[in-house]
Design a protein around this nucleic acid. Structure first.
Lengths: 228, 228
DNA sequence: ACGAAAAATGCTGCATGCAGAATACAAAAG
DNA sequence: CTTTTGTATTCTGCATGCAGCATTTTTCGT
C-alpha cells in the first residue's frame, strides 16, 4: 500500500489570513482523534517508523506531536521505549469527573453573573437542537451537541484557564463518554438534567445551575461505571 | 564561549533502576525553570539555533521540549515563526487564581476525609518548618515550603487529576508568586492563614479548611495585584 | 530623499542518517 | 525441558541537511 497521506489537513476555505498549518499540529489533532475514537487503544505502543509510514510523514513531526500529546496526558512517554496510549482506570475516570464537576460548578456560578442574554439564548438554541437529536435518537449528534453545550456554558464564565482545563478533561473523557448512556431511561434523565440546567441559567440562578451541573456529572459516573 | 552543557541532568544517585534521562525531558525542565525564574522573559522568542547552541544541544530535542511546553501553556507556537514565551495579563492571573482556589477548596474537602493522621502530621511538620523560615526572613525557602504545603494538601485528596491540574497552575503562577508578599504585614497575614489551614486540617473540619484555602488565595490576588 | 520592489539573510519545518539502547531470537548449558 | 547467555534486529534518541517562508537589507525608480 502506498503511504497516502490520509491526514485531515484543515480545509483552506473561509476568509481571513491563509493560515499555513504545520504538519506536527495536524498530527496532534489526528492522533488525538485516533485515540479518542478508539483506533489506538490504551496500551498501544506508538511506533514511530510504522505509524509515520502509515500516515505518510517522517518521524520528526510525529515525535513532536507525541510530545505534545504526552503533556496533554493522552499518551505516556517511556524513556528509550517510546510512547504508549495511556490507560485510564475506573478511579482515574472518577477522579476526572470529580474535578470536572468542580470546574463546571464554578463555571455555572460565573456564567450566571457574566453571561449576556444573547449568549444564554445561544445556549438555549444548542439545547433545543440537542433535544431534537435526542428525539430522533441520533446519538452521535446528540453527544456532539451535549459537549458543545457544556463547553459553551464554561465559555460564558469568561475565564480562559477554566476553559482550558475543562477542555482538557473533556478531551480525556471523550473516549469514555462514548460508551455511556446505555439505557433509554438514563438517557432521558440526562436530557431532563440538561433542561433544568438551561432554565437555571436563564433564571441566572447560580446556586441551582451549579447544583444541577454537579448532579449531572455525578450521574454521569453512574451511567459509565458499568462500562468500565 | 564554548557551548558547555549547563543542563542539570538529574543526579544518577539513589537506589532503584538506573533511569536514563532523555535530553528532551531534561530540556523541558530546564526551559521551564528558565521561564519561571525570569531568564526568559515573556514575549521572548525562542530561537532554536541560538538557544540550542547556548545549551549545547541540537535543535531536534529542543523542538520537542518546546512542543511539550506549548501544551503546558508556558510558550506559544506561532506557525512558521517559532515559539515565544507566553505573556500573562492581570486578568489571566486572576483567572488562574480563581480556578486554583476552586481546586484547592475541593482538595481541602477531600483531604479531610481521606488523609491519615500521619500524613496530616507531615503537613504540620512542613508548616512548622515554614514558620521557622518566616521568622528567619528566609524568603526563598519560605516560598518553597509554602508551595510544598499546598502541594502536599492537594496530594492528600488522592486524586491524580486534581494534583495534575493544581501542579500546572502552580507552575504557571510560580513566576508571578515570586513577586508577591511585599509588605511585612501581608506576609504575616499569609502565615496566619496557613496556621488556620493546618489546624482546620488537623480537626478534619472540611468546611473550614475549604474556606480558609479559598480566602488564602483570594488574598493572594490582593498581594500580587500591585505587582502586575 | 522617500517609497517600493527585489535580493539576501536567517529561521523554521521536515526528512534522513547514525549511534546506542531495548527487545527478540537462537544456541548452549544445566 | 528449562534457563541462561550471546547475537541479531528493531526502535528510539539525537544530529544534521535541505527546502521554503519570514524578515531585513539593498537597490532602483520617481
Amino acid at each position: 500500500m502506498d503511504e497516502i497521506s490520509t491526514l485531515d489537513r484543515p480545509a483552506s476555505s473561509g476568509p481571513g489570513p491563509i493560515r499555513r498549518t504545520a504538519l506536527h499540529d495536524t498530527l496532534v489533532n489526528h492522533l488525538r482523534d485516533m485515540i479518542i475514537e478508539g483506533h489506538l487503544e490504551p496500551g498501544t505502543r506508538l511506533h514511530e517508523g510504522q505509524l509515520g509510514e502509515q500516515l505518510g510523514v517522517s518521524r520528526t513531526p510525529l515525535r513532536e506531536a507525541i510530545k505534545y500529546l504526552a503533556s496533554e496526558g493522552l499518551v505516556e512517554l517511556v524513556p528509550s521505549r517510546g510512547a504508549v496510549v495511556k490507560r485510564f482506570s475506573g478511579k482515574d475516570v472518577q477522579d476526572m469527573l470529580a474535578v470536572l464537576r468542580n470546574l463546571e460548578e464554578l463555571a455555572g456560578k460565573l456564567a450566571c453573573q457574566l453571561a449576556s442574554d444573547a449568549e444564554i439564548a445561544h445556549v438555549r438554541a444548542l439545547h433545543d437542537e440537542m433535544v431534537r437529536r435526542y428525539k430522533a435518537a441520533d446519538r452521535l449528534q446528540y453527544y456532539k451537541l451535549n459537549q458543545d453545550i457544556h463547553t459553551a456554558i464554561v465559555r460564558l464564565a469568561q475565564n480562559a484557564t477554566l476553559a482550558d482545563m475543562h477542555q482538557m478533561l473533556q478531551t480525556r473523557l471523550k473516549r469514555i463518554r462514548f460508551i455511556g448512556h446505555e439505557g433509554a431511561e438514563k438517557w432521558a434523565a440526562a436530557v431532563a438534567e440538561h433542561e433544568e440546567m438551561i432554565s437555571a441559567l436563564e433564571a441566572r440562578d447560580a446556586a441551582r445551575l451549579s447544583d444541577v451541573l454537579g448532579r449531572h456529572l455525578a450521574n454521569a459516573w453512574e451511567r459509565v461505571r458499568s462500562a468500565i
